[in-house]
Design a protein around this nucleic acid. Structure first.
Length: 301
DNA sequence: TCGTGTCAAGATCTT
DNA sequence: AAGATCTTGACACGA
């Protein structure tokens, strides 16, 4: 079985290579003339894209096949103040180069819109903002010429005192998104509200893939038997190779936080459980790519 | 240069 | 109704 690994956004091996440089609204507002504002956004974006390229080469050298893009490649991209330039047009060459590196080297990439992007919100303005953010992520992936295998991972959202209604609203709101975006969205179980059973139900209904987060399942579940659920979860990916998220708890006091590295014994235990399946593994650990290399080494021995 | 408070955004729990 | 927390890297400011 060939296991491919990956990490999110930032390398702990390659120094001074942030892909999420930004400018705060407060500082941006202090800039008076529009030309300087434009220059500021463009310069930061180019740095983030160039650093992304550096990380991709690093990943190729280390045989790390999965990578999650920073959501902040383009600063203020979804903010009103940031609507002063056509970033995909002006940085088209760099976006295309990233896409070429990915395609030519068989890398598998994704994005993960943040906690503020809530599809199942009952507030219309919040939904509009969520839609805008998803459109931004999609625009970036399209600028890279990546097809719908480049996914956007999200959570279900809030419960709002009635999970059944909140689930239904996710489905309703999901259908209001552009089909290009629908085709990229995959749902992940979270650590407080939506268990693997909850998320699987939604994914089956919408016929979209489900990312199993093993750590979240340990944090929050409704007694679901993971081994029994695995075939159903992986089936949501149909012909494609499923992906899971794996991380280890930081401590007994803060079990939901991510630890520096992955507990190899715990990972092997999961492998035993999933022995009949083939899947990709996104490692969520504070030491990022260092944690990937360490785990891989420990699995070899 | 270093340490620390702050940051666009939502949901939820506490006060 | 207002504030803290979640989670997190990076910014911004003052020492």
């Amino acid at each position: 079985m060939e296991l491919d690994f990956g990490y999110a956004c930032i390398s702990n091996i390659i120094k001074d290579c942030s892909t999420a440089k930004t400018v705060t609204i407060k500082q941006f507002k202090k800039i008076d003339d529009s030309e300087t504002r434009h220059w500021k956004l463009k310069r930061i974006t180019e740095t983030n894209l160039q650093n992304t390229i550096r990380l991709l080469w690093h990943n190729i050298a280390e045989n790390i096949k999965l990578y999650r893009f920073s959501s902040q490649l383009v600063p203020l991209a979804t903010h009103q103040l940031g609507q002063i330039w056509d970033y995909t047009e002006e940085c088209a060459t760099k976006f295309a180069k990233i896409g070429r590196i990915i395609t030519e080297n068989g890398l598998k990439v994704s994005t993960h819109p943040g906690q503020y992007t809530v599809i199942n919100t009952p507030k219309e303005d919040v939904f509009t903002k969520a839609k805008t953010d998803l459109e931004y992520h999609n625009r970036v992936l399209e600028a890279m010429n990546l097809d719908s295998t480049a996914k956007m991972v999200t959570h279900t959202g809030g419960v709002y005192g009635n999970k059944k209604k909140a689930k239904d609203r996710f489905i309703t709101n999901f259908k209001r998104l552009d089909s290009t975006i629908q085709n990229r969205i995959v749902l992940e179980n979270d650590d407080t509200s939506y268990s693997i059973g909850d998320v699987l139900e939604i994914c089956q209904e919408l016929e979209i893939p489900m990312v199993l987060d093993v750590h979240h399942h340990n944090c929050y579940n409704q007694g679901e038997n993971l081994k029994k659920y695995l075939p159903k979860i992986f089936a949501t990916w149909s012909k494609r190779k499923p992906k899971i998220h794996f991380s280890s708890p930081y401590s007994e006091e803060k079990p939901r936080h991510h630890a520096d590295y992955i507990d190899a014994a715990a990972f092997k235990k999961f492998l035993n459980l999933a022995v009949d399946h083939n899947f990709d593994v996104m490692i969520e650990a504070k030491q990022k790519d260092k944690a990937v290399l360490k785990l891989r080494k420990e699995l070899e021995s």
